[in-house]
Design a binder for these strands. Structure first.
Lengths: 236, 236
DNA sequence: CCTGCACTAAGTACAGCGTACGTAGTAGTC
DNA sequence: GACTACTACGTACGCTGTACTTAGTGCAGG
């Protein structure tokens, strides 16, 4: 009998092909693409082993020959999305390059709204994640700082972008599991907030909302946030 | 027959007691505390309606009289954790106060390792979240800036702390679902990373790891990150 | 060449989940 | 005291991840 189930190993260290037996019907990329397709179309919660298998056109349990655990499927998805990162020759202007990195990451996450929810440091070992990290370091070559500082820079910028976009998209992703619509959800929450503010218990928040009435320009806020992170690591 | 299931309303707007019928056996706090106890002891994934009901000593479906949806249970948990935030009289030194806020939030998340995973802007309307936000604004009174800027400051600091602690604790929370131990997981991932670095495909990362050999001082990194955020919002 | 074995593929089954629904019992109101 | 809104709880359904079994395929060694 073959070794079954999960053994402690990273999916990337698992050889895709072992040489013996019939040729696998699908590649790892096929599986990742199918999962990404489902997540894009029907939300992350629709990504189940059964649905991915159905999308591929194979039996549910056959998937386990390629992906030992559901968790590994997520890891494949994150890496597949990471493949969409466009890498360029660093321009010599590290601020401009990093700004471009941040914007691109945000766009990527808008294209795949499930991505922020899956973002985790433990997926930072995937092939495309490593390529991406190396590219960021290359963009930071003109910056005079220790590698440790640069790593912290990249981590902070990435973290800020992820957190920001997550906040942008959170309700949109969550709302798929709600028994009512996103508009209803927002209306209900805003009405509740309004009642709380009006209670007078939170004077500064009341002032804040009075001062900044009207819709928020998410683009402008994002750009300001990125600039602040860049400032935080620029030599004084 | 009573109105059943979920209607579009925030849990906080739902009255805890309506007057008619038998007295409810549990308060909302009881339920939140039970869920938090389970999450602390056995991880977030152990927080199921069945387990929480069992912890309370009631039938599973009775829970739905108090908590219309699982999601609302999470919201109660986040608010219950937020109740542990200690609020103080602002000192007049906004940097000192915000540093203290950041450290306290981190400690809170270390006490409840499931908290970062549940952190979401949509939970920012809970009573203790509002209190916390008002307190942060009070701490920022000495800072000369528009309320909009202060809100962005608070969001960025909170986001940074959440992301950081999430990265600290992520594997620890995830590992409960893994079929092997955290040590094995780490060993496997580090071995893989080492192999990739050694391949020569990532020269800057190799240099970075060569330069910063040895364990990372998580406390020091955290303090540096906080300081950078404070710097980013300090007047020049 | 053939035999054997390592692998893939697929089906069945199980424990656990969130929760819709029906029923029984309780306590405040008229 | 009757009505009625409410609480409490059991059953049941469709979904999940995945352990295990069986059948079939194709490369490797003799």
């Amino acid at each position: 009998m073959a070794v079954r189930g999960a053994v402690p190993e990273v999916i990337w260290a698992r050889p895709e092909r072992t040489g013996r037996g019939p040729k696998p019907a699908y590649t790892r990329d096929d599986i990742a693409a199918a999962a990404v397709r489902i997540a894009d179309a029907r939300g992350l919660d629709a990504v189940s082993m059964r649905h991915v298998a159905a999308e591929l056109g194979c039996g549910t349990m056959s998937l386990y020959n390629y992906v030992p655990r559901k968790e590994d499927l997520y890891e494949l998805m994150v890496d597949a999305a990471g493949a969409e990162h466009e890498l360029w020759e660093p321009s010599g202007d590290w601020r401009g390059d990093m700004r471009r990195v941040a914007r691109q990451t945000r766009e990527l996450m808008h294209r795949h709204p499930w991505l922020p929810r899956l973002m985790s440091p433990v997926y930072g070992f995937s092939p495309h994640a490593l390529r991406y990290l190396e590219h960021c370091l290359a963009c930071l070559d003109p910056l005079e700082a220790a590698y440790g500082t640069k790593m912290e820079f990249i981590a902070m910028l990435n973290g800020m972008v992820t957190t920001y976009v997550r906040n942008e998209l959170d309700t949109a992703e969550r709302v798929r599991a709600l028994p009512w619509s996103e508009d209803e959800e927002n209306a209900v929450r805003i009405a509740h907030l309004g009642r709380q503010i009006a209670s007078g218990a939170y004077p500064r928040m009341a002032a804040a909302f009075a001062q900044d009435a009207g819709p928020i320009d998410l683009e402008a806020v994002f750009e300001r946030m990125v600039e602040r992170v860049l400032d935080a690591f620029a030599p004084r």
